[in-house]
Structure formats: structure tokens, C-alpha cells
Amino acid sequence: MAKILGGITTSHIPAVGNAIQKELYDDPYWKPFFDGYPKVHKWIQDNKPDYVINIYNDHGLGFFLDRMPTFAIGAAHEYKNEDEGWGLPSLDPFPGAPELSWHIIESMVADEFDITSCQELPVDHGFVVPMQLFWPGAPHHPDMPKTVPISANTVQHPIPTLKRALDFGRSLRKALLSFPEKDAKIVVLGTGGLSHQLDGQRAGFINKEFDQYCLENIVHNPDELTKISRMELVEKAGAQGTEFLMWMMMRGALGDDVTEITRNYHIPISNTAAGTLLLECAA
């Protein structure tokens, strides 16, 4: 049976891709952000996951408003990174794991989660930037795991509730643990957040106090966070801070017993309060 090693969260700001390309690791603006990753790199090197479940939110590349799935799971042999409209260079395709994808889809639909399966899914910065941060040189890192992307809708309300996101993760956990490949090692990513708002007269809004509350509780008390309503999440985390839902989905997949390995929090990167967290599952 498969094993879930742990979960890693990170912000997925497009500007990070640019900073990586220009190798701005020691630039005074970027250093406090990039300093959050060496411990993650070491953990990945020590544990060498075979599969990475990348939970992110599409930003208008893979999906348009004509058909907007609440929860979509990739089931492709590979995932192409395409132009999002800014003309930035695209990365090479990421190798998929369709047998694991279909196992998850079968298991979660049987568990009464209604999933949209995607045999083609172009992936944007929400998926790609975390891969670059965790596996430098991705997708050509020598230990690059095969991937299953999972995208949740935060583009258009109604978005899922925090409780639904956590429950989704718990159902995903059951699916992963029952994957019949012997000794398969899996890591789960939750990408996006933390507080930020891009649109309206309130653009630029960041809420350190609320982010710290979320960071504190998500480690050992994620159910507490399900009391936050979606509108409260918009109000306190900003219109795009709703990406915290991905963190909740990731957290649900880890089970109750986790150990915090590292954490980083920095304001601002681009318009965002950037957060990184690595949680290891009990053996």
C-alpha cells in the first residue's frame, strides 16, 4: 500500500517564476522568501517521494467560465505549461500518473465527492511555481515525482466551504492510502495564499494577524478553521486569499498526527503575504 509522507504548502505568485528564472535568490527583496525553502529541499531529498499531488487553483488557463468545475482532477500522461497571456517562457511538460489519477477519482466518487476528470489540463503558475520552488529545475530535477494535479475553483463564487475543502482532503487521504502500488511514497502540496487582494479599491489588502491565526490552527487544529464562513474568508484574507482552501485540502490528506518541520512567512512578495509550511505525517 501507499504511504503519505507529508504535505507542503507555499504561495504560488507568478513573480516567483520570474525571480527563479533570473536567480534572484540573494536579492534583498527576495532573500527572506527563498530562505524558506532549503529545509524543504533537504526533506524532499531525504524522503524522495514517488508521486506529488499538486492541489492548486487554476487562474483562467485550464478553465474558463463556460464550464467551471468546483473540483477537477487531472488524469493525463503529462501536463503542459502554457502561456497565460504574459508571454513568459513555458516550462516543459510535467509527467503525469494516470493510474493514480483514476484510482483517486474512483475512490473519491465512491466516497460521494463529485469530481470532474480531465484528460487534458494545461497548468498555470499555480501548479508550476511550487514545483519549481520544491524541485529546482523542474520538471528536469533528477528526483521529479510523477504528478496528479487537483484544481479547486476560487475564480467564481460560490467557492467550496472550508469544511468541504478539509473533508475533500480527508477523502483524498483514503484514496491515496488504498493505492495498491507497494511502498509508493506520496507528498501532497497545497498552493496559493496567504492573504492578498488584487482587485477593487481594497487592492493591496494584507492581514498578518489572520494569516498567523490560520498558520497556527492548520497544524494541529484544522477543524477550528472550518468555522470561518466563505465571506469571512474574503473579508479577512482578501478576495484572492480564498486560495487558503488549497491549504485546507492538503491538510485533510495528512491525518491527525503531524509534525511541523519548517515554516516561513513574509510580507510582501508581489501583492501577497507569502507563506510556506512543511508538515510530516507520523510514520
Binding site: 467564481q156 463564487h157 477593487g200 479599491q201 489588502f205 478576495a239
Partner: peptide, 22 residues
Amino acid sequence: FDYHIDIPGTTIFDGKQAMKGY
């Protein structure tokens, strides 16, 4: 509905906005 609250400087992009802006 849950979404009908006023957050100053913030437009909730819901079904109504999605139809208007399609």
C-alpha cells in the same frame, strides 16, 4: 445567501457578475 454581505472596496465575483461580464 451567504455571499450577500458588504465588504468595502471588494466586488464578490458571483453568478450575477459572471453573467454580466461574460
